[in-house]
């Protein structure tokens, strides 16, 4: 039986960060997962009810792989927060495209999120060449409920103490273009796939040969398409326009409901998680992992997601591989229903 620590205490959180960023062999990962699972189950009623429905308790849990995962949509319908009445230090909102209501990820403090965001990026070498960072996104102070802006802000703080710059949409594109044209040291350009598409539209046929060692990072492109541009075409356009290799383009796969991110390199790259987070590709009917090479849904176990729930079930399709997973895109929001009215249709009529 575990005696879970109290994750509201700053010292405990610092120790947890150290544990996550330290060596994490399988047994240690299992121990930490059980500890966080027991703590969250005791504090998040919806998670407790979900686990009860699956007949899983800390005492009966055999492996971290059996932890019931919270459907992502629950962040829109319930408060998933492990600190009761304590005021969250940050609230990140998801898009409200599915139900019209945004989901909310409440963090007691951004300390753990910041630590793993930065460590995750460092692990894959994003800051190795000390690039000049540019973000096609709103800065955190203007988008306090955007987890993406927050992450970019953390990166900016971690890499060369705030040398980076945020560029917000079309109004800033001319300035960004001029800045990139004159760059002499490696630059990094990060933003949503959608933001990149807009920037490409703005640049038209203009080519910007970025200095050697530069990289691009797009996120949100995992859905397979950004606007009308399939991912291979987007990456081809990025390599052509910015003069970088396909391997110098990263995809970040994360979401507001999580604290950790997975990364893939190049348009066909496999996604890999940091040691403190795992992704299982599961059959939703059984909750068990599919065999390698088979398609299933992405399920996250994120030890950095201390303040809400560590296990998240997404509707993102992926193929399990020996060394990671290949994202295929999100399930359509509804199956073909023809004349039968669905939730999306109902919303559309309002």
């Amino acid at each position: 039986m575990f005696s879970p620590r109290e994750f509201s205490r700053p010292a405990v959180r610092r120790a947890w960060i150290a544990a996550l960023l330290g060596p994490l062999p399988e047994q240690r990962f299992e121990e930490l997962t059980r500890e966080l699972f027991a703590w969250q189950m005791a504090r998040v009623p919806a998670f407790r009810r979900l686990c009860a429905g699956h007949g899983v308790t800390p005492d009966t849990l055999r492996s971290w792989r059996e932890i019931p995962a919270m459907p992502q949509v629950l962040f829109k319908r319930a408060t998933l927060y492990a600190h009761g009445e304590r005021t969250p230090g940050a609230v990140y909102e998801t898009s409200g495209t599915t139900t019209g209501e945004p989901g909310r990820q409440r963090l007691l403090s951004t300390d753990i999120y910041e630590a793993v965001c930065v460590a995750g990026a460092r692990r894959i070498g994003l800051f190795a060449d000390a690039p000049e960072l540019h973000f096609i996104a709103s800065p955190p102070r203007l988008a306090p409920h955007s987890s993406l802006s927050a992450m970019f802000g953390f990166w900016n703080r971690a890499a060369e103490a705030g040398r980076g710059k945020f560029w917000m949409g079309a109004a800033d594109f001319a300035l960004l273009r001029d800045r990139l044209v004159t760059a002499r040291c490696p630059v990094a350009l990060a933003g949503t796939a959608f933001g990149f598409v807009h920037f490409l539209d703005f640049l038209g046929e203009r080519r910007l040969a970025l200095p050697r060692g530069s990289w691009l990072l797009e996120t949100g492109g995992f859905k397979g398409r950004s606007r009308e541009i399939p991912k291979p075409e987007l990456y081809a356009a990025l390599t052509r326009t910015f003069g970088v290799a396909d391997r110098a383009i990263w995809n970040e796969y994360g979401m507001s409901e999580l604290s950790s991110q997975a990364y893939a390199r190049g348009h066909a790259g496999l996604h890999q998680t940091p040691p403190w987070a795992r992704v299982l590709i599961v059959d939703p009917a059984t909750g068990r992992e599919v065999a390698p090479g088979r398609e299933g849904l992405v399920r996250w176990i994120d030890l950095a997601n201390v303040d809400s729930v560590l296990a998240l079930q997404t509707l993102d399709r992926a193929v399990r591989t020996a060394t990671g997973f290949r994202l295929l895109g999100r399930l359509p929001r509804t199956e073909p229903r023809g004349c039968s009215l669905g939730a999306d249709d109902l919303l559309a009529t309002r």
């Binding site: 919806a46 009810r49 979900l50 699956h54 459907p71 949509v73 629950l74 009917a285 079930q313």
Partner: peptide, 12 residues
């Protein structure tokens, strides 16, 4: 189907 079940259970 799995989502509908899990959502309902989590909501009590």
């Amino acid at each position: 189907i799995a989502e509908a079940r899990d959502v309902a259970q989590a909501l009590g």
